[in-house]
């Protein structure tokens, strides 16, 4: 009986410290951070863009993101959860390859990087590999009546280097790249 009373009182104090004081403390610290703890945002004109969360882009005019199992639904994220040997899944990958080949003039199958035909874990990957951006340059340049060289330079400028230049992969944030593309188009 004494144990029960101790348990109840101890739990209430844990709840106060860990479920109320601790989150409020972290919330206060977050107010000092970029985005004030509401997700990293970029204001462009009147529009707010969450650069940390991936989204769909019109492949006719913009650089494409990776395939997504949830069609970039940021209110219900998820992966495909298809096993590597699943026959239906492999057909899907084949279709993605065919679509890419059709959309991008002059592209060879051997040039397609794996990330552009596979879905990410959360279905919200904001990044693509450098190779995945490079193979889209010709298509995007033609669609926007820009020089291929100009667009290529744009891609080079958007490469995010590994942590401290040594650890982890190179990558490109697709939203930032497309926003830069829109800027270039307006000029």
């Amino acid at each position: 009986m004494k144990d029960l009373l101790t348990a109840v009182r101890l739990t209430l104090w844990c709840a106060l410290l860990l479920s109320i004081v601790y989150p409020l403390l972290i919330w206060s610290i977050a107010q000092l951070s970029p985005g004030q703890g509401q997700g990293v945002q970029e204001m462009l004109g009147a529009k707010v863009h969450f650069t940390g969360v991936g989204q769909n882009f019109d492949p006719k005019t913009h650089f494409q993101s990776r395939p997504s199992a949830v069609n970039y639904n940021a209110a219900g994220a998820g992966g495909s959860n298809k096993g590597p040997s699943n026959p239906d899944y492999l057909i899907e990958v084949k279709n993605r390859i065919d679509t890419l080949l059709k959309q991008n003039p002059g592209l060879q199958t051997s040039g397609i990087p794996a990330d552009l035909v596979t879905a990410s874990g959360a279905g919200l990957d904001p990044h693509i590999s450098v190779q995945a951006a490079k193979i889209q340059v010709r298509r995007v340049a033609m669609a926007n009546q820009l020089q291929e060289e100009q667009v290529k330079k744009l891609v080079e400028l958007q490469i995010e280097r590994p942590f401290l230049g040594l650890f982890g992969p190179d990558r490109i944030n697709v939203l930032k790249l497309n926003l830069a593309l829109d800027q270039l188009r307006k000029k």
Partner: peptide, 18 residues
């Protein structure tokens, strides 16, 4: 299918981690 695997197996993985 002819796709390069130099990134490794990418299904279900995020580009920023590898």
């Amino acid at each position: 299918m002819g796709i390069q695997q130099n990134q490794g197996s990418m299904e279900g993985k995020e580009v920023r981690f590898g």
